[in-house]
C-alpha cells in the first residue's frame, strides 16, 4: 500500500468509475507527492477529466479509494468539506459567475467559507489578481474580458481559497491560439511556486517544461507513468508512442 507514506498528498488506489454501463475508469492507481507537478494526457474519452473530477468529488467513484492529505473521500459531509478545502479546480469553460464582477467572483468563496471580512477578502483577491496580471480588470464583468483573461481570473479565484492542490481540466482547450500562452505562463509560474498541480492538457511544450510526472491514459486505464524526460524521449508502450506521434507531429 502506497497510501501510508507521509510524502503522498493524493493517493488513488484501484479506482473504478462507471457512467451507467460504460466504465470510464478501470482500476486506476496513482500517487502524487506534495509539490509534485503531474500532467495527464491521452486521447479524448480516455478518462483524464473523469480522473481529476473524482479527486474533488465532482464525480463519485464506485470502486477503489481516494485519499487526499490523509482524508478518504466518502459521502460524508465532513470528508467532502475537508477535501474540497484542499483542492482547487480550473475548468475548460472557465465557469466564472457571470452576474458578479471579477472581484466579487474572487471574494465570494473566502467570505462565505472562511468568514473573513469584505476588506480582507478584497485585499486577498487583489493580491492574486496581481499575480495573474489582471488586477486592472477587477471591476469588470466576466463577459467583458477575453477568454485568456477569464481563465486567468478563474485561476485567481481558485488561488483565493488557498488550496494545497490545484487541478486543471484542459484549461487552454477553449481558448483562441493567441491567448493560450498568457494562461500557460501563469500556470508555469504557479508550478514554480511549489503548489501541487495535476493538469489535464494537450500542451506538450508546457508539459515538458513543468511536469515532474507524466501520466498517459487510454480507454479508462493508466497506460504509462514516467518522468517527463523519459516520457517524451523513450515512451514504453505502443499506444503512448502512437499518441505522441500524432500530437507532436503538427
Amino acid at each position: 500500500m502506497e497510501t501510508t507514506t507521509t510524502d503522498t498528498l493524493i493517493g488513488i488506489t484501484n479506482l473504478s468509475k462507471y457512467f451507467g454501463t460504460f466504465q470510464a475508469l478501470k482500476d486506476v492507481s496513482l500517487s502524487v507527492a506534495p509539490g509534485e507537478r503531474v500532467v495527464v494526457c491521452g486521447p479524448s474519452g480516455s478518462g483524464k477529466s473523469t480522473l481529476i473530477r473524482c479527486i474533488n468529488r465532482l464525480e463519485k467513484h464506485e470502486k477503489g479509494q481516494i485519499i487526499v492529505d490523509g482524508i478518504e473521500l466518502t459521502d460524508t459531509r465532513e470528508s467532502l468539506d475537508k477535501v474540497r478545502a484542499n483542492v482547487g479546480m480550473v475548468f475548460q469553460q472557465f465557469n466564472l459567475f457571470p452576474h458578479l464582477t471579477v472581484l466579487e467572483n474572487l471574494t465570494l468563496g473566502p467570505k462565505r467559507v472562511f468568514k473573513i471580512s469584505e476588506k480582507e477578502a478584497r485585499e486577498r483577491a487583489l493580491g492574486y489578481l496581481e499575480r495573474v496580471r489582471i488586477a486592472d480588470q477587477a471591476d469588470k464583468y466576466p463577459r467583458q474580458l477575453s477568454g485568456g483573461q477569464q481563465q486567468r481570473v478563474a485561476i485567481a479565484r481558485s488561488l483565493c481559497m488557498e488550496p494545497r492542490i490545484l487541478l486543471f481540466d484542459e484549461p487552454t482547450s477553449a481558448l483562441d491560439p493567441e491567448m493560450i500562452n498568457e494562461v500557460l505562463d501563469v500556470m508555469t509560474e504557479l508550478a514554480n511556486s511549489g503548489i501541487t498541480m495535476i493538469c489535464v492538457t494537450h500542451e506538450m511544450g508546457f508539459a515538458r517544461r513543468v511536469a515532474d510526472k507524466m501520466v498517459f491514459m487510454d480507454q479508462g486505464e493508466i497506460v504509462e507513468i514516467s518522468d517527463a524526460k523519459s516520457f517524451f524521449t523513450a515512451p514504453k508502450s505502443d499506444r503512448c508512442k502512437d499518441f505522441l506521434q500524432k500530437i507532436l507531429s503538427h
Binding site: 474540497r84 479546480m89 475548468f91 459567475f97 457571470p98 468563496g109
Partner: peptide, 29 residues
C-alpha cells in the same frame, strides 16, 4: 449551466450559499 454548480462546489460553497449567491441571482433574471 452545470458548470456554475461545479465552480461553486470547487470554491467550497455549501448548498444554501450556492443557491443564494450563484444560482438564484442568475435564475431570477
Amino acid at each position: 449551466n452545470k458548470g456554475q454548480y461545479e465552480a461553486a462546489h470547487s470554491v467550497s460553497l455549501n448548498y444554501t450559499d450556492t443557491m443564494r449567491f450563484v444560482i438564484l441571482p442568475q435564475a431570477i433574471r
